[in-house]
Amino acid sequence: MLKIGSYEFSSRLLLGTGKYPNFDVQKQSVEVSETEILTFAVRRMNIFEATQPNFLEKLDLKKYTLLPNTAGAKTAKEAVRIAQLAKASGLCDMIKVEVIGCQKTLLPDPIETLKAAEELVKLGFIVLPYTSDDVLLAKRLEEVGCHAIMPGASPIGSGQGIINPLNLRFIMEQSDVPVIVDAGIGTPSDAAIAMELGADGVLLNTAVSGAKDPIKMAKAMKLAIEAGRLGYEAGRIEKNEYAIASSPVEGMSIG
């Protein structure tokens, strides 16, 4: 089970809801992924298009926990405001803190992220900050009371996979709260590697929504995350430079 704050989940896949080709494909992708946590962004509504469909309306909200993000915020103050808007919907008390400091790399601003996270913990949110893979920053985020830490594997939407497994591993080893690898995942093997490293979960979006067949990729990600987790729990063998025979060396009927 994945425990985040007061919540418990059997799926370790957190799925983003951006950029799907259409709602039908998205709905099926969400279903086959078996995710229980869906991220959303908060934006101004086009009030003159009330009939415009919204993905949220297509979901059975009893089946999913919503994880709104603070994307669009450049400061802690803006992030706190977006979080409060999201919570005022009455649908959620979890928040993905996302304070972007650079528009080209979409890397998070560490100082503002920490400030926002600390404030939101005080306000009673379940706080999951998106952060770089800085090990000490991850520790600081945990110390201010974050309920999970979400280091990026590589830049958002880049599909570059896990650039620095060592740092992710250090973060996982030191953390007493769940570590969810967020952003940069491109392929099922990336997600499996994150889980084999010891991640408690993986958050991804574009890897599924941007795939040629998002539904198939959603299934692949689900299986990869499960396989990676099982592999981690099973414990891998030591790496050796030379071969070690799997068959017995005694009792051969030769010579």
Partner: peptide
């Protein structure tokens, strides 16, 4: 000021008020 849902029917509007209406959209 964020307005709680239960206060929407009793909160009166006046000329020049600044209103933000937001919702959830797809995002990662």
């Amino acid at each position: 000021e964020i307005l709680a849902k239960e206060n929407q029917s009793e909160t009166r509007l006046s000329n020049g008020d600044k209103v933000e209406i937001v919702h959830f959209v797809g995002g990662g």
